[in-house]
């Protein structure tokens, strides 16, 4: 098979203070905004911005502290970024300064507040190994249900 451009991964970590500068530079080179997403890491929230031109990607990663995460918005340079930034605000609690179209936390109306970065978990490790406890919690509920069903069937 010929050249696989999709396997080229280019992820550059930059400082939050250099974000606007790097994004303006990349816009003048003709890249378009692909996506922006956030990930919870230990004591921090990492935001990944992806830009694309001619089927090659360039990604910027910015790490900010997760107690009261705040960063400048790039929607002044790329207007469509408001979609991703509003979502990150609702799910992670990140405040974006100078957001072009700000829904004020009501973009997604969800039952729990900032579910990916709950207030009590800020500063703690992300819940990566919690799958086991949650899985066994489900089995407990299922066990109880089985018990009730068995009693009903009179076994």
């Amino acid at each position: 098979m010929s050249e696989r451009k999709d396997l080229i991964q280019d992820i550059v970590t930059i400082e939050a203070s250099h974000l606007l500068e790097s994004v303006s530079d990349i816009k003048s080179e003709g890249y378009r905004l692909g996506q922006a997403c956030a990930t919870k890491a230990e004591g921090a929230v990492e935001i990944l911005y992806s830009f694309e031109k001619d089927e090659t990607l360039k990604n910027f990663k910015v790490s900010i502290e997760d107690k009261d995460p705040e960063i400048h918005s790039i929607s002044g340079i790329y207007w469509p970024a408001f979609i991703y930034e509003n979502e990150m605000h609702d799910l992670f609690g990140i405040t974006f300064r100078n957001l072009a179209l700000d829904y004020g936390g009501h973009f997604f109306k969800i039952a729990s507040e900032t579910p990916w970065n709950p207030v009590e978990d800020r500063g703690a490790k992300p819940r990566e190994a919690s799958g086991k406890e949650l899985k066994s919690a489900k089995t407990d509920k299922e066990n109880k249900k089985d018990k009730v069903d068995k009693e009903r069937k009179g076994k």
């Binding site: 179209l101 700000d102 829904y103 004020g104 009501h106 109306k109």
Partner: peptide, 15 residues
């Protein structure tokens, strides 16, 4: 139309 947060002092024109 739709659900609303409990405090109606929030800016309603965008949601």
């Amino acid at each position: 139309f739709g659900t609303q947060p409990d405090d109606e002092s929030a800016d309603d024109s965008k949601n």
